[in-house]
Nucleic acid binder design. Structure first.
Length: 486
RNA sequence: CGGGAUGUAGCGCAGCCUGGUAGCGCACUUGACUGGGGGUCAAGGGGCCGCGGGUUCGAAUCCCGCCAUCCCGACCA
């Protein structure tokens, strides 16, 4: 691939480097036609292009769920008040942000219903009916659904009143199996984020103050956005026997005794789309990793002379060959827009690779390829083109991941003293790795004073032996990853 | 809930101080020429100036009240 010429600067005001990153984000979401505000406060309309990305994410996740033995099912949207109220911590966590249904038709309901904020309670109720014996275990069910949480502050994809997600709910015979499942599914999320979204994540244990309401332990994957803030991209909870005891999910064990099951739940949402935007985007708008790009290649024919008889058939032949190799291709043959306009539009919408073909290329038996990630534009021979394109898409996928890793490493610091931690948080943000004693009080004080929270305690963290807590100075037990978060 | 700001065309904004025909950019419609990085020219369409009241011959503009949104706190997957 020989380098021909540089692409001129993108004529736009949007940039992720600007102080107003939020503005850049909203601008990209709307101009790339991913989503829009709806008339209902705090709710989002996902537009076809944004939804196509979600569908590709669903496929990537579903394939992994199936490979780990999970099956899909569906549970109701409404949950009776009494069910939600059964688990004490769960109620306290979710009651402040649920939507209530009090009336059906013209009649006042005898018992209020909540619109599910999550489905542990309704699913737990059903599991109690389905489980009799150890032979019925494990239950490995996932559901794709919408949930509602009445948030005060909302932001497209990141936090909306209603959002789409998947929630896995499993029941196991032993504590060990449940823990294994919890960690296994977090690993699935990590693999998905890194392999498909090209987004490196830190996987680890949440602190008690940030764990799921009703869980024994919560694990998370945390990604770093380009403005230096962290985003929780997925969670996996070990529920222990908490919900089993409340919903009476019991089974007769191999030793004839009656036992409670051990549960897990795990989920990722459309927030992942927001994560991708903020992890990869640049001055030109969105950059999509090829694996989740609705159009991996957009072919822009150059309309000159009798292009419909010469250029267009060649473009269609290239398209057919690429489609035969499993590439998602769109020919943008609209006559209503100029080529330059199309170049910019598809860049804004994050298409990984653009293929230009015009009369000059046909003469020379070549095409022009423009990479979205590096914005390099170069010609490539027609000979062996489809193989070259397939390989180039893999290169782009890889390059985006490498770039995101480099960015994260560049924005991860170590601080053993509180002064250092504070100084870093005031300046260029990112992850700060500091020794921590494990006390919630220290965690809370750091949050109050620096706005940074403990994102998680990574599985592969370094030993804190001999170190002292960054806040209180007592002996540290672990290295915690701090960051300002979304 | 406290502090600050803003509501004018689909989007982004000017006009308000000093009252007098409702403006600009983008987008949209029609036509011609164009087309390898957001084309040019010409002609058009689109407004409860957030809502309600007051002052005035006359209010987007001044006054009062309300509502909504955004930012900073507080609160929260």
């Amino acid at each position: 691939m020989s380098k021909d010429d540089e692409i001129p600067d993108f004529p736009t005001e949007i940039t992720p480097q600007s102080k107003d990153f939020g503005r850049w984000y909203i601008d990209v979401v709307r101009r790339a036609e991913l989503a829009d505000y709806s008339p209902v406060k705090g709710c989002m309309v996902i537009r076809p292009y944004g939804y196509a990305i979600w569908e590709l994410m669903q496929q990537g996740l579903d394939r992994r769920f199936k490979a780990t033995g999970h099956v899909n099912a569906y549970f109701p949207l409404f949950i009776p008040e009494s069910l939600l109220m059964k688990e004490k911590e769960h109620v306290e966590g979710f009651a402040p942000q649920v939507a209530w249904v009090t009336q059906g038709g013209n009649e006042q309901l005898e018992e209020r219903l909540v619109v599910r904020p999550t489905s542990e309670t309704i699913i737990g109720t059903m599991y109690a009916k389905w489980v009799q014996s150890w032979r019925d275990l494990p239950i490995l069910i996932n559901q794709w659904a919408n949930v509602v949480r009445w948030e005060k502050v909302t932001r497209l994809f990141l936090r909306t009143t209603e959002f789409l997600w998947q929630e896995g709910h499993t029941a196991h015979e032993t504590a060990e199996e449940a823990e294994e499942e919890t960690r296994k599914m977090l690993a699935v999320y990590k693999d998905f984020a890194e392999a498909d979204l090209a987004m490196p994540v830190v996987d680890g244990l949440k602190t008690d103050s940030e764990k799921f309401a009703g869980a024994e332990r919560t694990y998370s994957i945390e990604a770093l956005m380009r403005d230096g803030r962290a985003l929780q991209a997925g969670t996996s909870h070990n529920l222990g026997q908490n919900f089993a005891k409340v919903f009476d999910i019991t089974f007769q064990a191999r030793d004839k005794s009656v036992q409670y099951v051990y549960g897990t739940s795990w989920g990722v949402s459309t927030r992942m789309i927001g994560a991708v935007i903020m992890a990869h985007g640049d001055d030109g708008g969105l950059i999509l990793p090829p694996k989740i790009a609705p159009h991996q290649v957009v072919i822009v024919p150059i309309p000159r002379g009798n292009w419909k008889e010469t250029v267009l058939p060649r473009a269609q032949a290239i398209r057919d060959e690429l489609v035969g190799r499993g590439v998602r291709v769109l020919i943008d043959d609209r006559e209503t827009q100029t080529p330059g306009w199309k170049f910019n539009e598809w860049e804004l919408r994050g298409v990984p690779l653009r293929l230009e073909i015009g009369p000059k290329d046909i003469e020379k038996s070549q095409v022009v390829l423009a990479r979205r990630d590096t914005r390099e534009k170069a010609s490539a021979p027609m000979e062996g083109l489809s193989a070259h394109v397939v390989q180039l898409l893999e290169t782009i996928q890889r390059a985006l991941f490498d770039r995101a890793i480099a960015f994260r490493d560049d924005h991860t610091s170590r601080a053993d003293s509180y002064a250092e931690l504070k100084q870093i948080m005031e300046g260029r943000p990112g992850f700060v790795v500091s020794p921590w004693c494990g006390s919630a009080a220290c965690e809370a004080e750091v949050k109050t004073e620096t706005q940074a929270t403990i994102r998680n305690i990574p599985f592969n963290g370094t030993s804190a032996a001999g170190k002292t807590c960054v806040k209180c100075g007592r002996a540290a037990t672990v290295h915690a990853w701090f960051a300002k978060a979304y």
